[in-house]
Nucleic acid binder design. Structure first.
Lengths: 114, 114
DNA sequence: GATGCCAGTTACCTACAGGATACCAGCGAT
DNA sequence: ATCGCTGGTATCCTGTAGGTAACTGGCATC
């Protein structure tokens, strides 16, 4: 069964699932910062302006639950925690590119014909 | 200037713009109901289970602001109001298809390797 | 032994999306 | 006249995302 053949309510459900994973104020900025090299908790916090520890902590857990981020604890002293973007995370790229494109064109559209 | 060449903060902004337009509990179900033929306010309300008049009213205004829906008032007696999906709304299709696909695969992924 | 860094947690608070319910004016049918 | 349909508004309420600030335990440095 391919997604194309699904009943419409199922399609909406899958769209909602996708929205749930990537929406919110911080998910994409965090993934971005990590792509730019930030791996430690505090590094990510510094790389994402204005985010608080509580929110970062929660968002990282969400991202980990959704397999987009991998959390590794090294048994050093003190313990070192590393967050990395998973290979699976790359599967989001076509979607994110599509969203950038639509957002870009939409803004132009709203400006030219309000 | 193509979206590909934009600085990353701009890309995030466009993604947020896109999210703002299509996220929320009701926007897609409403567009769907309209695609299935509902045009009058009460028809749409009946076609979208559980939505309240207040929320439908607000969502239709948002969709109209974003040029996805066209509101036409006919000078009959009593007045008839028709909502239709705009041609521009079709530009969302690649994005929505991408979201259905990602959501579908993601759910499979979460089930097979939790 | 005091200070500071790391990786968070906890408790409390605010703003906003969305929900429940009631209501309005205008008209047509009974 | 009164009931019901239309296209909504107005009020009040709840739930959740996100924000503020303080705090913890372990280690390292001064």
């Amino acid at each position: 069964m391919k997604p194309k053949d699904l009943p419409i309510e199922q399609k909406i459900k899958y769209v909602q699932d996708t929205l749930y994973v990537i929406s919110g104020k911080w998910k994409l900025p965090i993934l971005l910062a990590m792509n730019f090299g930030a791996r430690r908790f505090r590094d990510i916090q510094r790389a994402v302006p204005k985010i608080t520890t509580k929110v970062l902590s929660k968002e990282l857990k969400d991202l980990e639950t959704n397999l987009l981020v991998i959390r590794t604890v090294y048994d050093t002293s003190p313990v070192t925690v590393e967050y990395t973007v998973s290979p699976y995370c790359k599967s989001l790229k076509p979607l994110v590119d599509e969203m950038i494109l639509w957002g870009y064109n939409h803004r132009k559209k709203l400006i030219t014909q309000p």
